[in-house]
């Protein structure tokens, strides 16, 4: 799809009329702008003066550019750095582990000669049909595994997606010729060797797609923090953002800057509104900056039919 966007449109004699083309163009232009405006608003508020925001409200054109909000955030750099640390650790550990575990599960059930293939396929497939619900699931992680306030509670629950395991299995089945596997076996290669030296290198497209989805899932996750994290030590970036939006005082009460001001008996109020939006930018930033680079791989992954059971 990258090379030929259109088929019906590729024929110059069968193109839409210039008027229709212009209308479609303008329509998409407006929609695209509408998609980007909300992000722009957040950027602009984070760069505004707190007093202006309080009197005029959130505005696309600030009276003056003011970096106070970011200065406040960076005096509290420990919390931000800590949260980035949590998010980055969870994302990297989670993506690597989940890719390995899912591929290792997908390979045996892709092999038609494996006698228990049907059972293990059903074993994972059934989890897509029925689930126990939030309460028993929570009790397993908190009461049985004792993972409350543990960073692994943010990694483990997202490790295996039945859907992706089946996607990987289908890819193994449809792209890796059985002849290659048999030849390797005759040459005396062990199953592990075959898996790591032959199967995975041939499956990079699907593994890359799954890894990308998994990275975004881990990076964007706040639900696991909401359920399992009760202390303030293991706050991921998303959860920190959530807490700040819900409770305007959250960062203010935890901030070094604010406590220093209070200790000095100062009257400077914490620039809540702008700091909150600056915090949002810290959370949105990495995704938006990385987006142009990873976007096309998602489109490719979805369109080659890799992500389809």
């Amino acid at each position: 799809m990258q090379t030929e966007m259109s088929k019906s449109g590729s024929n110059p004699f069968n193109a839409i009329s210039p008027t229709a083309n212009t209308i479609i163009n303008i329509g998409f232009m407006l929609y695209t702008i509408a998609c980007l405006l909300p992000i722009l608003l957040i950027v602009m508020v984070s760069l505004s003066n707190e007093q202006d925001v309080l009197t005029k409200g959130y505005s696309f054109i600030p009276n003056q550019i003011d970096f106070t909000a970011y200065k406040f955030l960076f005096t509290d750099w420990q919390q931000i750095l800590r949260s980035y640390g949590v998010t980055i650790f969870v994302t990297i550990a989670g993506t690597i582990l989940s890719l390995i575990i899912m591929a290792l599960y997908a390979y045996p059930i892709s092999r038609t000669d494996f006698p228990h293939r049907k059972f293990f396929t059903f074993f994972i497939f059934f989890t897509m049909l029925f689930n126990g619900g939030l309460v028993p699931w929570y009790l397993v992680y908190v009461n049985m595994l004792n993972l409350r306030d543990n960073i692994w509670a943010l990694v483990l629950p997202l490790l295996v997606s039945a859907f992706f395991v089946l996607v990987i299995r289908t890819f193994f089945q449809s792209t890796i010729p059985v002849a290659i596997l048999e030849a390797a076996k005759i040459d005396g290669a062990s199953e592990m060797l075959i898996f790591f030296r032959i199967v995975t290198p041939l499956s990079l497209p699907v593994l890359a797609t799954v890894a990308l989805f998994s990275t975004v899932n881990y990076w964007n996750d706040w639900f696991l923090s909401l359920v399992f994290i009760t202390d303030d030590k293991t706050l991921s970036i998303q959860y920190l953002m959530y807490k700040m939006l819900l409770n305007i005082q959250f960062l203010a009460s935890n901030s070094n800057a604010a406590s220093a001001i209070a200790a000095a008996g100062g009257q400077v109020s914490f620039p809540n509104e702008t700091v909150r939006m600056a915090m949002a930018i810290m959370g949105i930033g990495p995704i938006v900056f990385a987006y142009p680079f990873f976007q096309k791989y998602f489109v490719k992954g979805l369109t080659v039919g890799a992500v389809k059971g």
Partner: peptide, 12 residues
């Protein structure tokens, strides 16, 4: 993973 994350909660 499936036992802890899915099947025990199903029994639960």
């Amino acid at each position: 993973f499936l036992i802890f994350n899915n099947y025990i909660p199903m029994l639960g």
